[in-house]
Design a binder for these strands. Structure first.
Lengths: 220, 220
DNA sequence: ATTACTAGTAAGCGAGTAT
DNA sequence: TATACTCGCTTACTAGTAA
């Protein structure tokens, strides 16, 4: 969507164009947008063509109403701003299911971990992790995790080797509850490891390459 | 503000750029915005020049942080969307103080009205109305009043003449509480009449032509 | 890898104006 | 009064490429 069309649509919405027909000449709209009558007229034509507004031409001016699609577009823009300012107790990721090295299973079956998962997260993880590769740019969002208190799973030692501390954040993957697991000290990876009480690949019918939505939730 | 710069700024904010430095190449940004690396680079230059972001150039990529001004810009955009969707129990107007015909005083001193103002609005209006001329386009917002229940002041008759019903909405003018008064059946005018328990022109130091902010509040 | 310059092309703009 | 077309001008875009 062209940025200036969105801006125009927002301006109409501010005048009440979602609920009511707005009486607005192209000249007036131009004034609101700091542009000319001709440009405003063109914007209206474009919005109309894209079915984001509907118009009735009165004798003078025109009656403009924002369509369902137009409203949806504004709503999704609004959601973006909510994510920026209000929903900072949540972080959203898009990812693609990927197969790890199969190590997840080994770790999640260690009693030293599972006991703590049960205590601190409230569920016994299904063996193995579901790995999701997030887009490279979205790695930036991981830095936001530093502002929030993680659920810390303590490391432990067995006869053979030692296991390090692990940080968890409660999260959802395609609406199914679970948690993100991150090694304690290490740089952020572009692979997120997800644990859950259920077999996610089965329940969500996922295979490698499928898109998933992950929401990390700090409030719960 | 150019619409595409705002869009770019929002994208950076979604990656956490308000709180953290975001590691973002112009190529990646271009991908996010569905445009080329060159255009994204230019956007970043423009945002930098306008001091909406600050940048550090690493060896690769760059670290981008949204400045205070950048955040303010996004915040005011967010406010617009809140007004569209969430604060639909409020309507905002900009207006200019104007002198009416002096009739306001005559009406507000009628006992048939004042008694009801006291009962239904909770205050005895200072004699006279403060009139504000709203911009022509903002008249559209008045149509939103139809969706809300007005406080109705009943008309009455005296020996000499009869007075019609009046609709009121609780409102604020430059943060001072009062109410907007509208004749019951008539087309919307571009003049809003405001009553309050205090002498507004005095208390707010207003004279003709001064800008005022009026907020009609349906919830209170 | 990057960023960002140059230059040629495409899109956007608004004065003038027809309707 | 309106809307919206044409057309010359400006801004914005991206391929190529230097650093």
């Amino acid at each position: 969507m062209k940025a200036y069309l969105l801006q125009t649509l927002k301006e109409i919405a501010l005048l009440g164009g979602i609920k009511n027909k707005v009486e607005l000449s192209s000249h007036e709209l131009g004034k609101q947008l700091n542009t000319s009558q001709q440009t405003a007229s063109r914007y209206l034509l474009e919005l109309d063509k894209k079915k984001l507004i509907s118009r009735e031409h009165g004798i003078k001016k025109q009656l403009i109403l924002i369509t369902k699609e137009g409203k949806n577009l504004l709503q999704s823009e609004y959601t973006d701003f909510q994510r920026i300012f209000d929903l900072s107790d949540k972080i959203f990721f898009k990812g693609k299911v990927t197969s790890g090295l199969g190590e997840g299973r080994y770790y999640t079956e260690q009693k030293g971990y599972t006991k703590q998962f049960q205590e601190k997260l409230g569920f016994k993880p299904y063996p193995g992790t579901l790995n999701a590769e997030i887009e490279y740019v979205e790695k930036n969002k991981l830095r936001l995790l530093n502002d929030h208190r993680a659920i810390v799973i303590d490391g432990f030692k067995t006869k053979n080797r030692s296991f390090g501390n692990v940080r968890c954040f409660k999260a959802e993957i395609n609406k199914k509850k679970g948690a993100i697991v991150l090694p304690m000290r290490s740089h952020y990876s572009h692979i997120l490891e997800f644990i859950a009480p259920i077999y996610l690949r089965g329940k969500l019918n996922l295979k490698d390459g499928d898109n998933v939505n992950i929401i990390i939730n700090f409030k719960e």
